[in-house]
Amino acid sequence: MSLRRVVRPAAYVVCVRAGRVLLARWTGPRGPEWTLPGGGLDHGEDPRDAAVREVEEETGYTVALDRLLTVDSVHFPDANWGRDERIDLQGIRIVYAGHVTGGTLRHEIGGSTDRAEWFDRAEVSTLPRVSLVDIGLAAADAADPGAHAARAR
């Protein structure tokens, strides 16, 4: 029996402020893992609008997008989809750099994440996290090579 094929586009934001990275804790099938704030596009939604919407939903912050950092693709040939369905999932992950423009940090209630928090860059490597965190931070460093060194001071 072949699984239903699903392509899921999603948009995420790398927010770094004073050497700290904003992350959201995803409550996925492997247990809680930290990820970049963001998520799936609604049908017909622009990825930039989805990124801004998702950050607000998951963290309470409003953000402005600075630039596109990278587009990443992942494939999960036997993924959980909801409670009872297995699917062949390809995720297209669009990652932007952005900065906080307003709002107050809060945790999402009833969504795919349960916490939002700022972490020192050095601390991120010790967290249980999805690969997208490392991909997004590497893309941010590549886009602005001197910024990481300046933030670390």
Results as ranks from 00 to 15, higher is better:
Ser2Thr: 13
Arg4Glu: 10
Val6Glu: 04
Val6Tyr: 02
Val7His: 09
Val7Gly: 05
Pro9Leu: 03
Ala10Asn: 10
Tyr12Cys: 01
Val13Arg: 00
Gly19Ser: 08
Gly19Ala: 12
Gly19Cys: 10
Arg20Ser: 04
Val21Met: 04
Leu22Ile: 09
Ala24Asn: 02
Trp26Leu: 05
Thr27Cys: 03
Gly31Gln: 02
Glu33Ile: 01
Thr35Asn: 07
Leu36Thr: 03
Gly40Leu: 01
Asp42Cys: 05
His43Asn: 08
Asp49Pro: 00
Ala51Ile: 00
Val52Phe: 00
Glu57Leu: 13
Glu58Asn: 09
Thr59Met: 02
Thr59Ala: 00
Tyr61Ile: 06
Thr62Ala: 12
Leu65Trp: 15
Asp66His: 09
Arg67His: 10
Leu68His: 07
Leu69Phe: 07
Leu69Asn: 06
Ser73Phe: 14
Val74Thr: 14
Val74Tyr: 07
His75Thr: 08
Phe76Arg: 11
Asp78Pro: 12
Asn80Gly: 09
Gly82Asp: 06
Gly82Pro: 10
Arg83Trp: 14
Asp84Thr: 05
Glu85Phe: 00
Arg86Gly: 03
Gly91Gln: 15
Ile94Glu: 01
Tyr96Trp: 14
His99Val: 03
Val100Asp: 05
Gly103Glu: 05
Glu108Thr: 06
Ile109Tyr: 04
Gly110Gln: 14
Gly111His: 06
Ser112Ile: 06
Asp114Gln: 00
Trp118Ile: 13
Trp118Ala: 12
Phe119Ala: 09
Asp120His: 13
Asp120Val: 03
Ala122Asp: 15
Ala122Val: 10
Thr126Asp: 08
Pro128His: 03
Val130Ser: 03
Ile135Lys: 12
Ile135Val: 15
Ile135His: 03
Leu137Thr: 01
Leu137His: 00
Ala138His: 12
Ala139Gln: 01
Ala139Asp: 00
Gly146Glu: 11
His148Gln: 11
His148Met: 07
Ala149Cys: 11
Ala149Asp: 13
Ala150Asn: 06
Ala150Thr: 10
Arg151Glu: 15
Arg151Leu: 13
Ala152Gln: 11
